[in-house]
């Protein structure tokens, strides 16, 4: 049975064995043997060293020479990092590859934790300046979260999907719906209502919470299946087996399995996408806060 095969594939975690390649794939994380990682580490160490070796009075903050320097570097980095969204829409621009750009984006973005935080001198409060820092940290940490997801999820996504496309998943469910619709035609009103519950109250994806939790116990198909199973069991105990109901039960079970696969797919895709729903809008808010921060600092110099 197809669903069982898919389930067992999901267990092993491997969809297909990788085809051998002529050249080893080099991801953006180890692009050019981690060139940008080295740059980022150097930048962080130099910034930290300068911070520790200087002793401004009364304290470190954005207003010391080091503070202004780190702030200028940080602001430039933030603007450049946010331009990845522009760069990736420009296909094939030279001389910097999108992979190299992404690699730099990731590592320089991480070093911004050091540069930006040292710029504050750990002088935080309820003001626009700390807001800019907090938004920056949210952006960076969401990026880190995204990378960690990209390191693990695609393999599982592929394993769950098997060789099936998204459209095929939908088609499978739709086909089962049609079969259910036909199989339910001879049923009386009560049983037909159960099938309608599966057909009409079934949301494949649902809300954000459902997509993330994978909890669809209240969904129409699950509820209909539970009741039908109950009815079939009752019928078996009393010796009056309704073939039509058993057919419906079989179809609902198959639909539930198809739904489960689609929903696992959706759950992983949601995770893969959700960090960007934080990363991108907060970046724009950060750019706004950065502008407010810089203008206000020099306006009230």
């Amino acid at each position: 049975m197809a669903s069982k095969t898919q389930a067992s594939r999901a267990m092993t975690g491997k969809a297909v064995t990788r085809a051998p390649r002529d050249t080893a794939h080099e991801g953006f994380l180890n692009h050019k043997r981690g060139r940008w990682a080295k740059v980022a580490i150097t930048l962080s160490v130099v910034a930290l060293g300068a911070y520790l070796l200087t002793d401004p009075v009364p304290r470190h903050n954005g207003g010391t020479w080091l503070g202004y320097l780190l702030g200028s570097i940080g602001a430039g980095m933030i603007v450049w990092l946010s331009l990845l969204g522009v760069r990736k829409r420009v296909i094939g621009s030279k001389p910097f590859s999108l992979k190299g750009w992404t690699s730099a984006h990731v590592y320089l973005g991480l070093s911004l934790i050091v540069v930006g935080t040292l710029h504050t001198g750990f002088q935080l409060g309820w003001n626009v300046h700390t807001l800019a820092w907090a938004l920056m940290m949210i952006v960076i940490l969401s990026g880190l979260w995204g990378i960690s997801l990209y390191a693990t999820l695609p393999e599982r996504l592929s394993a769950n999907r098997g060789e099936v496309t998204q459209l095929q998943m939908l088609e499978a469910i739709r086909t089962l719906d049609r079969q259910l619709d036909i199989a339910a035609q001879p049923l009386d009103a009560d049983d037909a209502a159960l099938v309608r519950m599966s057909l009409e109250d079934c949301r494949i994806a649902g809300s954000l919470g459902q997509r993330l939790s994978g909890n669809y116990a209240n969904d129409g198909n699950a509820r209909a299946l539970a009741i039908i199973i109950e009815k079939v069991m009752t019928g078996r105990r009393t010796g009056r087996v309704d073939d039509r109901l058993e057919q419906i039960e079989f179809l609902l079970e198959r639909k539930e399995a198809a739904l489960a696969q689609a929903r696992r797919h959706i759950r992983m895709k949601t995770q893969l996408e959700l960090w960007l729903y934080v990363h991108v809008p907060v970046t724009i808010a950060l750019l706004a806060a950065l502008l407010a921060h810089i203008i206000s600092v020099f306006l009230y110099w």
């Binding site: 998204q166 459209l167 939908l170 088609e171 469910i173 739709r174 719906d177 057909l199 009409e200 079934c202 949301r203 494949i204 994806a205 649902g206 809300s207 954000l208 997509r211 689609a262 797919h265 959706i266 895709k269 949601t270 996408e273 959700l274 729903y277």
Partner: peptide
């Protein structure tokens, strides 16, 4: 009712639907 409509693929599989 076509719960699984191909036209809805994006809204189902991407977060734009939620």
């Amino acid at each position: 009712i076509e719960a699984a409509d191909a036209a809805h693929e994006t809204s189902i599989f991407s977060l734009s639907g939620a």
